[in-house]
Amino acid sequence: MTFSPMGMTSRVLLAALAVFLALPVEAAQLVRIGAAHFPPYTVRPENGADTGLLPQMVEALNQSQSDYQFVLVPTSIPRRFNDFKQGRVDMAIFENPEWGWQDVPHTSVDMGLEDAEVFVAQRQPDRQQTYFADLRGKRLALFSGYHYAFAEFNADPKFLAGQYNATLTYSHDSNLLMVLRGRADIALVTRSYLNDYVLRNPEVGPQLLVSERIDQVYHHYALIRPQAPISSEAFAQLLQTLRDNGQLLKIFQPYQIQLVPTHSH
């Protein structure tokens, strides 16, 4: 039997190549982002809807790199704290550390995005901006689970109903309709949502008086669980990439959500 060094080398190389091809390509780290109904950021995620700004941002994050695969996990405004603490989600996004997260271990990433909560009333001939100065004696329509500055961020439904004559719903649309139909005096709505609502319902714009008074500015943060597969530094870098390539502006500018300089929290 003749021995061929060349043949032996080829077989060794082929065997090595076969082993290499059989090895799994390093899989992207799976990062689960909690998706709670918070329009226009997230819209009815439990129904499998992929509308809203969060799905757009996740798509941009996934397309910009291959180290992490971001997926949305439906949760709810009240349930999101437990889902985060128990590890069902790795990140909560479009959040503020002061919205009930004080006792939940996390690191925060300033997203450099700002929205605002404004007061909305029915436009009437004698009604001016002074109408929003005093909320006493007025019927408020609020979003259940939200933390409002005028109520010192106390989201307890009984407190809001007792102190502020508030009706709580899970729909900004319902709250605006209550104002338009005279069933509530003032609704509090995120500026981004109001902008989207008036674009969808142009006949409504002239019927609404929007406050110059802002209840609070939403300076958005991403909150990351200590055991998450992504660090706050790595996520901040991914956001910076989307900021640099214009993706963040493209997603958020149509909703009047401002891109602002980030600052450490």
Rank of each mutant, 00 (worst) to 15 (best):
P254D: 07
E114C: 08
Q86G: 01
D50P: 00
H219C: 09
L17V: 14
I257L: 08
I257V: 15
W101I: 06
T9M: 15
P45K: 04
A166M: 11
G145M: 13
Y218M: 12
D103H: 12
N165C: 05
F235G: 00
A161T: 14
K250E: 13
Q237D: 14
L188M: 12
F252H: 01
Y193C: 00
L142V: 13
S231E: 05
M91T: 01
Q247S: 15
Y255G: 04
T190H: 02
K138F: 09
P39R: 10
I257Q: 01
M111P: 07
Y148I: 13
V260K: 01
L248Y: 03
V120D: 06
R183A: 11
S232G: 15
A92R: 00
D83F: 02
Q128H: 11
H263D: 05
H147W: 12
G205A: 15
L72F: 03
T241A: 11
V104M: 09
P157R: 11
F81V: 03
S232V: 02
V109T: 08
L168C: 10
N201C: 06
L14G: 13
A222M: 07
Q65I: 01
N96W: 12
P229F: 01
P125M: 06
A155I: 04
D103V: 07
D156Q: 15
G182Y: 10
A133K: 07
A60S: 13
F132Y: 05
Q256V: 02
H263T: 14
R11S: 12
A27F: 03
P45D: 08
F150G: 12
Y148V: 14
I230V: 15
Y193K: 02
A222Y: 01
M178V: 06
Q63N: 15
R181I: 03
A15P: 06
M57V: 04
V12R: 12
I257M: 08
R127G: 04
H147P: 06
F3P: 03
R80L: 05
G7C: 08
A161K: 14
A49Q: 11
L53T: 04
Q207C: 07
F143Q: 14
A28K: 02
R127P: 06
G34R: 04
P5M: 12
R181V: 03
S264K: 08
R127A: 02
V260H: 00
T42P: 02
Q29L: 10
R127M: 06
T262N: 04
F132W: 07
Y164K: 04
V89K: 01
H147Q: 14
L223W: 00
R183S: 10
